[in-house]
Design a protein around this nucleic acid. Structure first.
Lengths: 236, 236
DNA sequence: CGGGTAATTGAGCTGGTTCAATCTGAGTGG
DNA sequence: CCACTCAGATTGAACCAGCTCAATTACCCG
């Protein structure tokens, strides 16, 4: 039995195999893995596909907090250890593994390398959120979008040191707007300007080609390779 | 030897005492505990006083990410496990304990209750950041300030279920602005309106009295007691 | 009393929003 | 093969929450 955490495959003792197998779920696009406020004593390992985590006001206004990509571990719990503080929704058809929190702790305990990777991924998540808060607070629309593109590029391991960097994001402009806290209208305009300026090209609105990494990085306010060190555990 | 994590005192085996003692530091107001980008293989336990964690653009624009209050544990590392992703600055005279990351891991391993509390505090931090991102993205100035006041109130254990709730925050309006991503001018105006509307009173600009918790909660978009469950580990 | 930090108040400005069309492309059914 | 539909992208234009700039006030401290 193997699981992938971050970019690393771990072989898991047979004792855990049954629990892992029975935790596998296929979620069709648009369905929910767990919901804010509900009791949910699992961690969720993303095997395949994209999820978003969101948080809402009672009024219904909803903010996209983060994406869950293959290899990511979603930890929904708030301080009480049991109640989910976020809602996780499948952005594509998704395969996840729901692991009871207690079992996950046992696994971390029994597989030291897994614990190390887990800690690096938690640090990566914190770093990601901090970078994003910095840009929400002090960055303008272009900085926020440029950063979002770079972050996704790095997380998808698509970064190329030279020439054109290409990757696929299963996101509408509305989702990019949710992620960057901008209206779809403004996302559209800004990305249009990026294309005009020769920073990126798009195909089908979903395949992104970064054609001028240097200037996109400048706009984002961070060097792409530096960001990779901050948020990609396996580069150490 | 005892340490306080969250609101809980833990007795620590003698083997760790020497390391803990030698990790103690007194930082005068305005000094820095660790700096973004530097190598720093410790976790920082806040014994007394307030710290802020910040993140900056190369241009110098700086965003306040979070506060470190007594009992909080600051984990500066990014995904590489060693490089600090944040800068921590003392907002008041501060007493901290710098614990080497490896030692901290040993302590978590040897003291199961400490590990549990640590996990709840990490969950609390995630919850706090999510709540804040929600308000940065979808909330207006009043919502953000109201939430900031409530969050600090809850973290300071000052919450009263009825009547007036009072607490002290060693913050200028400029810091509140940094925290909520608003200009000092706008913080001033909004807090002025809160006072006018009878939601809060202030003394010396630092002592806050919440005089209408119900309406402040409505403005903040969360019930104060619900927030307490989300971000206070020891209420479980 | 002088000097410095923080708060307050007024007034004009702007980045990004909202509202409202219009356009485009991928189905879908006949 | 075409007409219809629907989601998403694009474009234009008015609007506004919060910012910046600038001046004034309040308070503390030596």
């Amino acid at each position: 039995m193997h699981i992938k955490l971050g970019a690393i495959e771990f072989s898991v003792p047979a004792a855990f195999a049954q629990t892992l197998m029975s935790g596998m779920r296929n979620l069709p696009k648009g369905t929910t893995a767990f919901r804010e406020g509900s009791s949910f004593d699992y961690v969720v390992l993303v095997m395949d596909g994209w999820l978003s985590t969101t948080k809402s006001f009672e009024s219904g206004d909803t903010q996209l907090i983060d994406f869950g990509l293959p290899g990511d571990l979603l930890v929904p719990a708030t301080a009480d250890g049991v109640t989910a503080g976020l809602t996780a929704t499948a952005l594509t058809d998704v395969e996840i593994c729901m692991i009871p929190t207690a079992v996950w702790h046992d696994m971390l305990h029994e597989i030291p390398a897994l614990r190390t990777t887990h800690e690096h991924m938690e640090a990566a998540e914190r770093a990601r959120l901090s970078e994003r808060i910095l840009r929400l607070g002090k960055g303008n629309a272009k900085t926020r979008i440029a950063y979002a593109l770079l972050e996704l590029c790095v997380r998808l391991d698509a970064l190329e040191t030279c020439e054109v960097t290409s990757f696929h994001i299963p996101l509408t402009q509305a989702k990019i707007g949710d992620f960057t806290c901008l209206s779809t209208v403004h996302v559209c305009r800004m990305m249009g300007e990026f294309v005009q300026a020769g920073l990126i090209q798009t195909e089908d609105h979903l395949d992104i080609h970064i054609t001028d990494l240097k200037h996109l990085s400048e706009l984002a306010g961070i060097q792409a390779d530096h960001l990779a060190f901050e948020i990609k555990p396996e580069l150490t």
